[in-house]
Write a protein that binds this DNA or RNA. Structure first.
Lengths: 239, 239
DNA sequence: CGCTCGGTTGAGTTCATTCAAGGAGCGTGG
DNA sequence: CCACGCTCCTTGAATGAACTCAACCGAGCG
């Protein structure tokens, strides 16, 4: 055995609460370890999977940051999400046994490869795992409902504000600051996700800076007035 | 036994290929029947479930037509989908054991109630059912990706064209005409789904009529030139 | 018959886009 | 070290697509 080999397993992974947040006894947890076949590292800019490729596995992000995107025949792209440590990608591939979107690493990343047939097999035996898989998929459906609401009925400022609040909330759940963040994606990628052009994203950031709501320096962003952002997303509710 | 009681079961349901499209032996199929606890009818305008209500079951639509929608605190609504016979609704409720959207019948409807705990139980024993549940959820995720693409990067005409083509395709899969359809929803509901105002939907219909692409009389719609619609959705691809 | 609801159409406005120019940061190589 | 080229970002001015507001119409219904 290689001296530097570290035992990597869900049962002692520090992302456990994020990626496998269920009440499991020790025995179940050790069985879960069987699901993660291998690790795989993905360099910044590289794709983990592409639309059309055969689907075999789900991927749990251990480190790094991804975007997923769908494309039309005529070359338009839509970023469908940004994913960070502890989140699962690849769910789109299950229906047709092939992926229907691309997953691209926005920074050097490492993922746990979970062969889906093994996941199905094990989740027949471990009830908590079965339920967890269902919850992960349902969560993704609910998340996308939120994006549809954003794309369908919000104005540019509201979209950007909602985006920032969502991002910082998820980062905070992972131990990062609740006010400072580094944007791992370009303005164009943000725009694609939010249904806006990159210039509009840039202008909106500038407007927020003018109003003292955020500070922006390159991709470093500090939320100065989170309440103001919240008010932009949720205009005053009538009581 | 009541003389008029009809044996209702998946194993002899004519929607089987839509709602449970898997290769099942007779034995498995009979076990599936156990999943459908009861039927429930929903009058036009009534809600099957509401955001915030406790989640207990998934619903397979037997007859009728639904819309699902999410709402913000400040009263904005976003229609997240239109569902017809053979489709499953309620998947949003799994994550948090409560529904996160409303399901409203757009015409008198009947649904099969499938208690989710029984579905989980049975899908541990019947592999094909397990896989089918996964595929249903994955399909919904992929569908929503498509809506995000539509909302994020298409112009009004493209959205309406894509909407019509999608609707007629699904109706045709259920044995209806591939050119004629009845819109069960208002212009406002279409607009909400497509991220447009009702006036824009109306104007776009009028434009399509002028161009001889469709005929519209109230909610009755005939697609005269499906290719033209397709070209609107997919502007000419460069070769 | 008159009412309501849903739909259409027109006129004017607005918000985001397009087009364009310029700047700032960063890695590479001289 | 600086120059260079590149990508990413910012900002301004003009444009345009969809929206708002408003009037009107027609079908369905009590």
């Amino acid at each position: 055995m290689h001296p530097h080999t570290i035992k990597v397993a869900c049962s002692n992974c520090n992302l456990r609460e994020l990626c496998m947040p269920m009440q499991l006894d020790q025995q179940a947890l050790e069985r879960i370890d069987e699901v993660v076949a291998t690790r795989k590292s993905v360099k910044r800019g590289a794709t983990l999977f592409r639309s059309g490729e055969k689907f075999t596995s789900l991927y749990a992000i251990r480190t790094g940051f991804f975007k997923t995107l769908v494309a039309t025949d005529d070359g338009r792209e839509q970023v469908t999400g940004f994913q960070m440590a502890g989140e699962i990608i690849g769910l789109d591939g299950i229906v047709n046994d092939k992926h229907s979107c691309d997953a691209v690493a926005l920074e050097d990343a490492e993922v746990c490869v979970m062969p889906f047939d093994r996941l199905e097999e094990l989740s027949r035996e471990v009830n908590a795992l079965q339920n967890h898989v269902h919850k992960i998929m349902s969560r993704e459906i609910v998340r996308e409902h939120g994006v549809m609401l954003l794309l369908g009925s919000m104005r540019a400022e509201e979209r950007v504000a909602a985006f920032l609040l969502n991002l910082v909330k998820r980062l905070h759940a992972r131990g990062f600051s609740r006010s400072e963040l580094v944007l791992r994606m370009t303005r164009e990628e943000i725009g694609s996700y939010l249904g806006l052009k990159l210039e509009t994203v840039s202008r909106t950031f500038s407007k927020f800076v003018e109003e003292g709501i955020v500070e922006v320096k390159q991709r470093h962003l500090r939320i100065v007035d989170a309440d103001a952002l919240q008010r932009i997303v949720n205009p005053q509710v009538c009581h």
